[in-house]
């Protein structure tokens, strides 16, 4: 395939198929937020440090600001919007609420996706493993104390 500056891509997001034409330069996070209007995933930095845009691409946790939308062509994407089923919070979401693991809620979607990825790999992580699992997600409100508690509780 020769280089293109624009392409129609198809993605599956939380079980729903989408087809959109995107600029090659469009970041995956902008595609998700602006083009698909799934605004749960957030942007907190411009250097790939904060993790607010974390999503799962084909089951792998990534920061969607360090990936182009065009790279996601054909991929299966999971975002925070896909966690609750039929309006019921999943165990992790409920645990975040129970343990006051969120204040402003801005980092929360990315944090939840990192925790989701962690718990899929490791059903009973230690505190250190939890902290390593969310090391790529910055929270400026909670000092992480209750986030760690919430993830631990959800794993039990």
């Amino acid at each position: 395939m020769d280089p293109v500056s624009r392409k129609t891509i198809t993605v599956d997001v939380n079980g729903e198929g989408f087809e959109r034409e995107v600029d090659a330069r469009r970041l995956l996070i902008h595609f998700i937020r602006d083009d698909l209007d799934l605004t749960g995933s957030h942007i907190g930095c411009d250097t790939g440090n904060c993790g607010a845009c974390s999503v799962l691409v084909d089951g792998v946790l990534v920061k969607s600001c360090m990936m182009l939308a065009i790279q996601a062509d054909g991929a299966r994407i999971e975002t925070v919007e896909g966690l609750a089923q039929d309006g019921e919070l999943n165990a992790l979401q409920q645990s975040f609420s129970d343990h006051h693991a969120l204040q402003c809620g801005y980092c929360t979607p990315g944090m939840l996706m990192s925790a989701t990825a962690l718990l899929r790999q490791n059903g009973s992580p230690s505190d250190e493993e939890i902290r390593r699992g969310i090391q790529g997600n910055i929270c400026r409100c909670t000092g992480y104390v209750n986030i760690v508690e919430a993830i631990r509780a959800a794993s039990e």
């Binding site: 293109v4 500056s5 942007i43 182009l68």
Partner: peptide, 21 residues
Amino acid sequence: MLLREVEYARPASVQEALRLL
């Protein structure tokens, strides 16, 4: 956050990648 315009290719083989480069 906002990239300059760029073109994108996703070769299927190393040879194709080398050709594009």
